[in-house]
Amino acid sequence: MAYNHKVELSKPERFVGGHRLCAGCGAGLVCRGMMRALDEGDKAVICNATSCLEVSSFLYPFTAWEDSYIHSAFENAAATCGGVEAAYNVMKRRGKIDDTYKFLAIGGDGGTYDIGFQSLSGAMERGHDMVYFCYDNEAYMNTGIQRSSSTPRFASATTTPSGSCSVGKKQNKKDLTEIMAAHNIPYVAQTTFLGNFKDFHEKAHRAIYTEGPAFVNVMSPCPRGWQYPTEMLPEICKMAVETCVWPLYEIIDGEWHLNYMPKKKLPVEEFMKLQGRFKHCFKPGNEWTIEAAQQYVDEKWEKLLARCGK
């Protein structure tokens, strides 16, 4: 069914205000969008990795979730979710429940790319009927902006600060979306917050309503960690896509689909210059960092185009 923005936005809110995420936090947008992608009438259980989101959305006795929710630890959202799904299967089989439930795991890049990676990989391999959403804000924000394997090269984080002898993080960002695609699960996608949220919504909906495991990677800017004024979030997301730093694509049953081709691919500095974490890259003498970042994006983009048959 075609995306109808007004209809989708008129649904009852399933991730409510009153949570304690920072003003302008991208994670809140992922949660709202993810829950909106559920068909009305379908119930859900959310399994949350320890993260900014967790400590902000279920601070006893206040839950921001209208649906059942479980947080167990930092590194095991996927396995916990698998356990809930297993319980559902057996309860269904034994005729103990009639309702349809969907199982959504959600973690930040720390709980997904790094400490929770084994748990995620295992759950996806086992084929649980669940979706794992990663709200990727490219560092351990909950503990104070330490680098993760998702932090892009040259970003300044509190454990990879820029300094007279440092231009920020030394390594490139791990490509988790590709790694998840290599699990040969039925659905993998990456998206972010754009325009009327059509891209996000359609991917979240497809992920939830694909039988078997699915993974959605959502670039979710963090104003504090990326050092930008809160209201700049939409612009940053737009630039991530227009520069091809964060291409929109999905892998359906092993087939790669590019969802958006920029009319004119913008230089990567258009994305970087909006954020304080790359500020040092623009200092005289550090021009090479931007060149290197550009080269990396270009290489990745060409590979992606080839994979998507473009």
Binding site: E54, V55, F58, L59, Y60, P61, T63, W65, E66, D67, S68, Y69, I70, H71, S72
Partner: peptide
């Protein structure tokens, strides 16, 4: 619904 495992 049930919510389990809060920040306390």
């Amino acid at each position: 619904p049930l919510a389990v495992g809060p920040y306390d």
